[in-house]
Amino acid sequence: MRSSAVPQKAVILVGGEGTRLRPLTNGIPKPMMPVLNRPFLEHTIAYLRQCGIDFTILALSYLPEVIQAHFGDGSKLGVQLAYAVEHSPLGTAGAVKNAERYLDSTFVVLNGDIFTNLDLADMFAFHRRKGAKATIALTYVDNPCAFGVVETDDVGRVRRFVEKPKPDQVPSNWINAGIYILEPETLEHVPADRHYMFENGLFPLLLELGEPVYGYRFRGYWLDMGTPEKYLCLNCDLLSLKEKSALISGLSKDGIYCDGDVTIHPSAQIVGPAIIASRCQIGRKVHIKGPVVMGPGCSIADEASLEEVVLWRGVNIGAGAILKQCVIGDEAEVEARAQLINRVLPPRLS
């Protein structure tokens, strides 16, 4: 999918506090949450690089120093990174306005909690062919009532936006996918240093002004990982190869991937897919059924059972405990013989 026919720069909106993901985001920025044991934001940056975009601006607000310390100048990921830090939340459009000094040509904007395989080169070709000032990626959902719905005409030009319509007032099943291609002059309409949104601010204003705003429909993979359920789903989808990450290659459908210093008792049973990170210890008669992701330094005591779970760093699972469809944060402990079904345990804050 790598192509030179894409905008040269992208802005990723990673300033939110991740309130829908609490308690997992207590003390950790949402973009740093591990997906297959790598920060989610690394997957997004790798996707953009695969598409041909090597210069990315990160729009930060919540715990910016954590993200800056991890990513630095981006050279470890083979990209160039710049930062636009908000002293108070500026909203989606306001955050991009805050990065305006970097944006001197057509650029891409992505919401920081979206995982997708959208072909940006094809979307950019659509944008140029239509002569658009703004192009909004649209994804199809069966029930659009919880989303911002975008109504377009026969050639894709946006007619109107309907936020979270009632079931009997749904004009379309195509929703705003949180991915945009914009011309830099659109930012002239965004006020500086104040909270302002794309969804109910800039985009409706551009329509009022008669500017060409288009919707680009695609039916590929799209997931908003902004809730614990969707976060778990993303990990499972990637491990099960329902979708691939540009960051990680070489996975197989039922593979079991262990770092070299993992200790596994001979009586333990592991059915993939599973990723087991360094220093993990798996005890006697433990049963693991994938998809399962275990972060570094996890300990699974004797006769525990795990199915469809994501464990972060340093998690301790007691003897005989049963976990299914769970996400367990850093350093958390699960008592012996506990039964956790569809549960989330927050990280233990130091």
Rank of each mutant, 00 (worst) to 15 (best):
residue 324 K to A: 05
residue 118 L to T: 05
residue 257 Y to N: 11
residue 286 V to W: 11
residue 203 F to N: 08
residue 174 W to H: 10
residue 347 P to M: 04
residue 239 L to C: 01
residue 152 T to S: 03
residue 165 P to Q: 01
residue 159 R to K: 13
residue 259 D to C: 12
residue 158 V to F: 11
residue 309 V to K: 01
residue 89 P to R: 15
residue 242 K to E: 08
residue 336 A to E: 15
residue 220 G to D: 04
residue 309 V to G: 03
residue 243 E to H: 12
residue 324 K to M: 06
residue 83 Y to T: 14
residue 324 K to F: 02
residue 236 C to L: 13
residue 228 P to N: 00
residue 140 Y to C: 14
residue 57 I to L: 09
residue 291 P to T: 03
residue 256 I to A: 12
residue 340 L to I: 02
residue 176 N to T: 11
residue 166 K to C: 13
residue 165 P to L: 00
residue 100 E to T: 11
residue 156 G to C: 04
residue 131 G to V: 05
residue 216 Y to G: 00
residue 58 L to C: 08
residue 68 Q to A: 12
residue 137 A to E: 07
residue 210 G to K: 10
residue 162 V to Y: 11
residue 310 V to A: 04
residue 39 P to D: 10
residue 184 P to Y: 05
residue 35 V to W: 15
residue 66 V to S: 09
residue 145 C to H: 14
residue 17 E to C: 10
residue 182 L to H: 06
residue 139 T to H: 11
residue 277 A to L: 13
residue 123 M to V: 03
residue 130 K to N: 09
residue 298 C to N: 06
residue 149 V to M: 05
residue 168 D to L: 06
residue 251 L to K: 08
residue 30 K to A: 15
residue 82 A to W: 10
residue 195 H to R: 15
residue 114 I to G: 00
residue 178 G to F: 13
residue 28 I to F: 07
residue 106 T to V: 14
residue 113 D to R: 04
residue 110 L to I: 10
residue 260 G to F: 06
residue 342 N to I: 03
residue 9 K to I: 10
residue 71 F to N: 06
residue 328 I to H: 00
residue 21 L to P: 14
residue 113 D to Q: 09
residue 157 R to Q: 13
residue 80 Q to I: 12
residue 272 G to I: 00
residue 324 K to R: 12
residue 202 L to R: 07
residue 175 I to H: 08
residue 335 E to I: 15
residue 221 Y to F: 06
residue 201 G to A: 12
residue 29 P to W: 07
residue 244 K to S: 00
residue 90 L to T: 10
residue 178 G to L: 13
residue 305 S to G: 05
residue 100 E to L: 12
residue 262 V to H: 08
residue 230 K to F: 05
residue 318 G to E: 10
residue 131 G to S: 07
residue 186 T to F: 11
residue 276 I to D: 08
residue 240 S to L: 13
residue 235 N to M: 09
residue 104 D to I: 12
residue 247 L to P: 06
residue 294 M to I: 09
residue 48 L to P: 01
residue 67 I to G: 05
residue 101 R to L: 11
residue 116 T to L: 03
residue 102 Y to L: 09
residue 39 P to I: 06
residue 192 A to I: 13
residue 32 M to I: 11
residue 58 L to V: 09
residue 322 I to N: 14
residue 310 V to N: 02
residue 310 V to M: 06
residue 189 H to M: 01
residue 54 D to T: 15
